[in-house]
């Protein structure tokens, strides 16, 4: 006999936890942009602008993925 588990509720709870992890990661991505700026201020190299661009795109993508996950909750 298949047990009557509240699977739907468990899956939604799991998805919410995943989204919370994504939010925490987005905060880390934001901090990383600040760190890259500080690093570039201390040592400026020909790749400084590229690193800042990568950090910014990384942060934007981490926010986008939260929106995508929330839509598909």
């Amino acid at each position: 006999m298949v047990p009557n588990l509240p699977i739907r509720q468990l899956v939604i709870a799991g998805k919410i936890i995943v989204i919370l992890i994504m939010v925490l990661y987005a905060v880390f991505a934001f901090i990383l942009t600040k760190r890259v700026k500080l690093m570039n201020a201390n040592l400026t190299t020909p790749q400084s602008k590229l690193f800042e661009r990568i950090a910014r795109i990384h942060m934007v993508l981490s926010i986008f993925v939260i929106i995508l996950a929330t839509i598909n909750l």
Partner: peptide, 25 residues
């Protein structure tokens, strides 16, 4: 289906963003 395809796509995307962050850091 327990997890819908849209959420799996978001999960995969998040995983690759995390990996890029790991490499970058």
């Amino acid at each position: 289906r327990v997890i819908n395809p849209g959420f799996i796509l978001a999960l995969n995307l998040f995983w690759y963003i995390f990996t890029i962050g790991f490499i970058f850091q």
